[in-house]
């Protein structure tokens, strides 16, 4: 899992995570080590309940590990406070979930601009142009002013992909991004993630149950009982 010639953009060492009540807690992640590099697509596969999503949320700083360290762009964020973690999520990490989670009251353009508004490093016009460019890149250039709830499921997930890329994050974390889509839309969404990660030199980590999607990633990481059991280059 290491690529010694480059510096990992996301790295975790000895990651442990327990879930549930203190009396009946489940040891979900049992010392996970992982390094992700820019320009690569990684698939985590494994049976349900093995800790794939927990790992993704922990790496995405949506959840806090019980033990271990997480480095984003070489910076240890394991002990960062809530505000620092939120800022890192805004600037360094893009999320795509099984459900699109678009805000239905906003247009597609605005949904993509929401992370940019928060970051506030661009002028409104620049944000709007970037949102249009991203919509163009996911094939929705003609639906820039459409309300999010007026799109089909596949289109909504493509907008969610565009939103994940809004702030040009070096890391994209996707939790079963195609899990709710038909085969055709699954392929479209995966291809988008894959191609955009190459074009933008981003590390993409996808949790999936779909073996076809996993096979098309650069690396497949097999997980069982809270640890990686194998990793292989899919290419």
């Amino acid at each position: 899992m290491t690529q010694t010639d480059k510096k990992p953009v996301l790295e975790c060492k000895g990651l442990h995570r327990y879930l549930g009540d203190p009396e009946q807690r489940v040891h979900v992640l049992k010392g996970v080590d992982l390094q992700l590099f820019r320009g690569n697509t990684y698939a985590i596969v494994g049976p349900s309940g093995c800790g794939k999503s927990t790992l993704l949320y922990t790496l995405g700083l949506l959840d806090r590990q019980n033990e271990g360290t997480i480095l984003v762009d070489g910076i240890d964020v394991s002990k960062s406070n809530e505000d620092q973690r939120t800022r890192i999520r805004n600037e360094k990490i893009g999320f795509v979930f099984q459900f699109h989670f678009l805000l239905p009251e906003f247009t597609t353009t605005e949904n993509i601009m929401i992370p940019m508004w928060k970051r506030g490093n661009r002028k409104t016009l620049t944000m709007e142009r970037r949102a249009h460019m991203l919509l163009q890149s996911v094939g929705l250039g003609d639906k820039t002013e459409r309300l999010a709830n007026r799109l089909s499921g596949g289109e909504q997930q493509r907008v969610a992909v565009a939103r994940a890329l809004a702030n040009d994050p070096p890391i994209v974390l996707a939790d079963e991004p195609t899990g709710n889509l038909d085969v055709k839309n699954s392929n479209i969404v995966f291809e988008l993630l894959y191609q955009l990660s190459k074009r933008n030199n981003q590390a993409v980590l996808i949790v999936t149950h779909n073996p076809d999607i996993a096979r098309r990633c650069d690396y497949i990481l097999k997980m069982r009982d809270g640890v990686f059991t194998a990793s292989e280059s899919a290419g």
């Binding site: 505000d83 939120t86 800022r87 999520r89 805004n90 999320f95 459900f99 989670f101 992370p115 702030n167």
Partner: peptide
Amino acid sequence: TREIAILRSIGYTRRD
């Protein structure tokens, strides 16, 4: 709740 969660995940703080 889902919208709040997604806002939090894309960088909106609790204060926001």
